[in-house]
Design a protein around this nucleic acid. Structure first.
Lengths: 224, 224
DNA sequence: TTTGCGAATAACCGTTTTATAACCGCGCCA
DNA sequence: TGGCGCGGTTATAAAACGGTTATTCGCAAA
């Protein structure tokens, strides 16, 4: 089991690494955000622990980048009393958080819980029904049709929909996950992106079968 | 299912509210003890979450006041390592406690456990009798009838009524919850909204069975 | 440099949803 | 009896929403 830990506090990082490797996990370390993102791509860890305040890229940015291509469990480390950070982290798709200072015992318990929860047999995290995402190639394949290339934003959008296949995802949530912020004028971008995505994955884009809109609520991906 | 949350930490309150409403609960907020007591009286929540340290009235006092008139489940929030607080809280009749910091997931699990223990859980968060709300899809389903799509305002109104099923809710409170303000001319909007909602959920909208009006007071949802 | 592509900005259309307004009927009470 | 408040209903105007298309911008590859 491979765990990626990112924190700019060398001592804390060492403590975390020690605790986890003691428990039998393989720990990958990153001292800043950009390193973390790179490490994530090259190591494909089973779980990620991110400090929020880091040089390079903040924990938020790293989390966002990771969520753009994977659903691995992400745990955020925060300083106590920064609850608004938490809201943001969770909205970005983090699965749990731990506020500093924490005991190694707590850390371990939470890590185990998170891994258990993830089932760890993430089997094929990026498929739903006949829809198959390939984040490496940036492509989707629907049924036996030819794979279609997707842009970065299209991929992120579809990823969110695949992850919640069958349930509608609110526009706000999509906005947040795809662009990382919730500007008011950005509704336009979403409907455009949906439009482009439909052109690519629907048999008849004018009468969408898979990417349906839930009026007033958001969008959802229908899989049989 | 209605939950009253009292905490003077705005950010934490926001986090709690976010977590719970995400899970489909209707959250009533209070920023201090006295507000909490007043809100408890007017809202009759199904569960109460209280911070111990609050201006106005402490969590202890609020808990005591609530216990003087109700057996509703109460969960206390404590800071870690203040065990004597816990003892006192439990003696005052609190049903559970959670020490900060806690993860949203934990909170949700404990809340559900508490509701289950109280026997309130028999249904999903937002159902009352044969009425089933789906806040994600923006739909209601009544009995075995086909689900009906609701607009944003209709959903909020119905949510309020479902949370108070069987009891009449004053027009002012509905106005407040649905529109967020209490303008004078807005009575018109309410009666119109009620009208539209009846068209959607009543068998015979001209003779409402479920969404009944309490003349001079407000409206109430009748469930068997 | 030009070209090409993804993304952002903007505008248009038809539909749905919400707000404004008026009218109806009823019970109440001076 | 007539004025008044209240709730229900209907009509219409205004705003928001979703789909679509065209244009512009920024950037990196050719």
């Amino acid at each position: 089991m491979k765990i990626l830990c990112a924190d700019d506090d060398k001592d804390l990082l060492a403590l975390i690494a020690f605790t986890l490797s003691q428990a039998g996990y393989l720990v990958i370390r990153a001292g800043d955000g950009t390193t973390a993102i790179r490490a994530f791509a090259s190591e494909a860890p089973d779980l990620v622990i991110l400090d929020i305040n880091m040089p390079g890229a903040s924990g938020f940015q790293v989390c966002e980048a990771i969520r753009a291509q994977s659903r691995v469990p992400v745990m955020m480390l925060t300083v106590r009393g920064e609850e608004e950070d938490l809201v943001r982290a969770l909205e970005l798709g983090a699965d749990d958080y731990l506020s500093k200072p924490f005991s190694p015992r707590t850390l371990l318990a939470r890590v185990k819980a998170l891994l258990r929860r993830a089932g760890m047999e993430n089997s094929a995290p990026l498929t739903a029904g006949r829809v198959q995402l390939d984040t490496q190639e940036h492509t989707v394949q629907v049924g036996t049709r030819d794979p279609v290339r997707l842009t970065k934003l299209e991929l992120r959008l579809l990823q969110m929909l695949v992850a919640n296949a069958g349930h509608t995802v609110s526009s706000d949530r999509l906005l947040m996950q795809v662009w990382g912020h919730k500007g008011s004028g950005d509704r336009q971008l979403l409907k455009q992106l949906v439009h482009r995505l439909r052109q690519k994955i629907e048999v008849d884009p004018a009468a969408p079968q898979m990417l349906q809109t839930a009026v007033g609520a958001g969008y959802k991906l229908i899989v049989d």
